[in-house]
């Protein structure tokens, strides 16, 4: 069953057009990857889905209802949650408080503070420290944990591997498996192509604000991906 339907989505920052008619679908429980070079519009796309960038009402359909243009806080109510690029941990809040803010809307679901601490024990150890005192990898765990606290139906994950060591990224992707196991739908933006192809059922490639490739990972060759990434 299609959980998310995106139809000819275009997005602008003032006069600058970042997305040109993106169409895309994600079924409930699926994990879909979005890859592409810097500036291709991947983060803008996730931000548009999360309500941080204005879009026309029919461009985004969630669970059968048009939600384009809804404010970000209302989308969290529906279960659309973004783990933002750059983590965006709140410096004035402790680790635990950052997690609690994620639960602000009070959506019911399997994820609680305890469960998040079990998933990321290091967060439990540092629960009273300011959120930004953590290392890069730990902050990424905190950002993911914060997103989980909202008990999302659709979790949008933006570039979690940025600036992190491979071992840390491996650990993060293993935790994403645990999230998948709960039946959560995942839309993952990634620069690390091989990493994300291993977890996704389908992949879209963006180039200069448009979809340049859409397929199942098993059927893609490296040449095809490179061509879609950079242009033939």
């Amino acid at each position: 069953m299609t959980l998310l339907g995106v139809h000819a989505l275009s997005a602008f920052y003032g006069d600058f057009q970042a997305l040109f008619g993106i169409s895309l679908e994600v079924a409930e429980g699926e994990t879909v990857a979005v890859i592409g070079a810097n500036g291709a519009g991947k983060s803008t796309f996730l931000r548009a889905l999360a309500g941080a960038v204005p879009v026309p009402p029919d461009a985004v359909v969630f669970d059968g209802r048009p939600v384009g243009g809804h404010p970000a806080h209302a989308l969290v109510d529906l279960g659309i949650v973004l783990v933002p690029e750059g983590r965006k941990i709140f410096p004035s809040l402790s680790v635990e408080e950052n997690l609690l803010v994620g639960a602000y809307r009070g959506r019911r679901g399997p994820w609680t503070l305890d469960r998040v601490y079990r998933l990321f024990p290091v967060l439990g150890e540092r629960r009273t420290q300011p959120g930004t005192n953590l290392s890069g990898g730990e902050q990424q765990m905190l950002a993911i944990g914060r997103g989980l606290m909202a008990n999302p139906r659709l979790l949008l994950v933006d570039e979690i591997s940025l600036g992190l060591a491979p071992l840390v990224v491996q650990h993060l992707y293993r935790t994403l498996e645990a999230v998948k196991a709960e039946g959560t739908t995942l839309l993952v933006v990634e620069q690390d192509v091989s990493r994300v192809l291993a977890v996704a059922q389908r992949v879209y490639c963006f180039r200069k604000g448009s979809v340049s490739l859409h397929d199942v990972p098993a059927r893609l060759t490296r040449e095809q991906i490179a061509a879609a990434y950079f242009g033939a």
């Binding site: 965006k88 709140f90 004035s92 809040l93 914060r146 909202a150």
Partner: peptide, 16 residues
């Protein structure tokens, strides 16, 4: 405090 730190991200947390 979250809004004071970063209003945009606060909205993404569901804060109106």
């Amino acid at each position: 405090r979250a809004a004071s730190d970063d209003g945009g991200t606060a909205a993404l947390m569901g804060i109106d």
